[in-house]
Design a protein around this nucleic acid. Structure first.
Lengths: 145, 145
DNA sequence: AAGTTTTATATCGTTTACGATGCAAATATA
DNA sequence: TATATTTGCATCGTAAACGATATAAAACTT
């Protein structure tokens, strides 16, 4: 068989696996707070800028609104955010942090550090991570039309 | 706020996004053959070595059997594989390619090349891809206990 | 102003993922 | 050989993802 159809030669499989495993590594740090990883991502977006319409959150995470809407509804019923109709544009749903959602920022402040140290190894060090970031950023830029 | 809680500083978010976008890029190349990306991964595993028990396929893909089992059942009902009880070990389900599943190998032989060219850019070139592979492999190795 | 198009969000259906749990066959141990 | 443990797979419940489609509000066009 051709080498290019071998699993070990696939970039996508590596990304897919690394992504899943790293997300799994977040699990014990988030589940205690009742959070999933995508919900944690939404919180990070809102911690940077509160009161965002659904569309802006989706764009920031490069997700479709039909993924984000149910995610936000779950977060609303968990008391992490509120969703209310936009004043100027009645089509928009403005998402805002609740005190509970805001309060998690402090409680989760140690998470990135813990995860960071979980991936440090031979080829991935503070020196080489910028290279990795650049490559992933370029791939992402190339793939989002 | 601390920089380490910013989305743009997260490795996991990059991997998660790059993985999703690259998987999406596979979609138009696979959907015509009735395949999803995880199903394509299973085919790659079986093209390398046919007649594998569920467990070996799951291990190769670093997935849990409770993910792979329903995936294989769908592939069975799509006529891509057969599943039959192991002769020596009655607990095992041996998965085998059908002629249809085997035949897809040729039809999909151009997929890796197309996807490869889809990610080539400034920082990701035939020269630098080995570096990227090494970093992702090390991360994966570190994270799978 | 009436009609058309676009935009923002939601709904629906299908397929992953995965933690938790169940069950039967194989293996190890008493 | 009887019992306990492990192993391989399956089932269940929940939460993403995402293509396709629907709906209402806004913006644009005539």
């Amino acid at each position: 068989m051709q080498d290019n159809l071998k699993l070990d030669n696939q970039l996508c499989f590596r990304l897919y696996t690394a992504s899943r495993l790293l997300t799994q590594a977040y699990h014990p740090l988030l589940s205690g707070h009742g959070l999933t990883y995508p919900q944690y991502l939404v919180l990070m977006v809102l911690w940077e800028k509160d009161a965002m319409p659904v569309n802006d959150i989706a764009k920031r995470l490069l997700l479709e609104t039909n993924t984000v809407t149910p995610l936000l509804k779950r977060m609303e019923s968990d008391g992490l955010v509120t969703r209310s109709k936009g004043r100027d544009d009645a089509r928009q749903m403005i998402v805002r942090l609740t005190p509970k959602g805001l309060g998690l920022q402090e409680k989760l402040s140690c998470v990135p550090e813990k995860l960071g140290s979980a991936v440090i190894c031979d080829s991935v060090t503070p020196d080489t991570i910028p290279t990795l970031f650049k490559m992933l950023d370029d791939i992402i830029l190339k793939l989002k039309r």
